[in-house]
C-alpha cells in the first residue's frame, strides 16, 4: 500500500505512520494496528496470540526472501512468518520509552 519498498529510508518512518511488518527496521518495537487477509489466516494469527495492539519486533529476516522471525512482546512468543503473511500485518511505531 505504500508502493515499493525502499530499504534505506526504513529507519526514517515518522511516529504515527502505518506500514507492514516487512518494512520495519529490525529490533525496534512496533504496535499491530490491523491484520489483513482472509478469515482463515486471520484466525490462525489470532490463535497464535497475534492481536491488534500487541507490541512486536522484527527479529530477523532469512536470506533470499525467506521468512521473517517476529517476536511478539505482548504474548512473549517468537513466530516465523512467510513474507506474504508478514505483509498482511500492519504496524505503527511506538516510542522507545513505551517499550
Amino acid at each position: 500500500m505504500f508502493g515499493r519498498r525502499v530499504h534505506h529510508l526504513i529507519s526514517e518512518i515518522p511516529t504515527g505512520s502505518i506500514c507492514t511488518l516487512l518494512e520495519i527496521p529490525q529490533g525496534k518495537i512496533f504496535r499491530i494496528v490491523e491484520i489483513k487477509g482472509g478469515p482463515g489466516l486471520h484466525r490462525r494469527l489470532l490463535s497464535l496470540g497475534f492481536h491488534r495492539g500487541d507490541r512486536v519486533t522484527l527479529d530477523r529476516e532469512a536470506i533470499m526472501q525467506g521468512p521473517v522471525l517476529v517476536r511478539n512482546l505482548t504474548a512473549d512468543t517468537k513466530v516465523a512468518l512467510g513474507r506474504g503473511i508478514a505483509q498482511k500485518i500492519l504496524v505503527e511505531p511506538i516510542g522507545d520509552n513505551e517499550g
Partner: peptide, 10 residues
C-alpha cells in the same frame, strides 16, 4: 501455499 506460520519454541 498460504506461506509459513510456525511458532519457534524457546
Amino acid at each position: 501455499s498460504p506461506g509459513l506460520i510456525l511458532e519457534i519454541p524457546s
